[in-house]
Amino acid sequence: MIAFDYLRAADRDQALSAAQSRDGARFIAGGTNLLDLMKLQVEAPRRLVDIGALDLRQIERTDEGGLRIGALVSNADLAAHPLVRARYPVLSRAILAGASAQLRNKATTAGNLLQRTRCYFFYDPAVPCNKRTPGSGCSAIGGFNRIMAVLGTSEQCIASHPSDMAVAMRVLDARVETVLPSGERRALSLDELYRLPGDTPQIETHLQPGELITAVLLPSPPTGRQTYRKVRDRASYAFALVSVAGIVSMEQDRISGAALAFGGVGTMPWRDRAAEDLLVGQQPSRALFDQAADTVLAAAIGHGENDFKIPLLRRTLAAVLGKLTETVA
């Protein structure tokens, strides 16, 4: 950890100006990821602006029938909220499938979205990593890559996005509400928030320097069944090898709506509209589910130890779609 200064902002304006007045400033809330990275000198911010005192801890109904979740709402509180449990169960399930109770108590909604990859090589400054040290090379390519991504990768980076919550947010069409240093506000879909690694894997989002996420907006609850299925190496406290968030509605014996998002496989929380479109209007069948998997995985690239994620995603997706479309007697 290198020396940094620390400011505890009393309000939003203070936070924005404190972050703007020094290069290399970072906002800190729960700190469950950033502090670990600072100890290892993977992250070395010159200034930490603590936003813990900001009034961003409410969960409110929106006029559109959705929810506005304050950026500082803890993962534990969000998962346990009655409206979330009742109307967005995929979100509760995804959150509770991640981390540990202690971490969920401390981690925040916005912080979860912005957590960084768990790539082994990103975490070790002694070895090359384009995400940590641009241009130094990627140790995961040609190295042990069991937990890495198979979708959205580039020749510079194959690190997977680790979040469970973000996968559920993606399937729910969540948007982040931000405020720019100028005071201007904007809202971004998760598609607009995240960036693929490309040639700049060190830049993970489209947020501008000093831009602060203030809330996550959920649209009105989707129709249909929701589920989150996470496949991992042990029963708790492990990142997803593959996860599937699914929302499917049926009319008669046909699929009338489908939303699917995937964790553990992508360099960002993954969604594939083409696969969803393919399902709509069809009768559920194993062949149809395989077609959907073919679509999702069309561009998938394995790197050796992570090859298994491709067939594992296929199997998991089929099982999830089977459950979401099965007729209840």
Partner: peptide, 25 residues
Amino acid sequence: LVHDVRTGKVVNRDLGEYHVPVHAD
């Protein structure tokens, strides 16, 4: 304990990635 076959380096050098059983297991 995974060693990088190019250097022998321990790849999974924390308890997040070196998996011992947890209570739920």
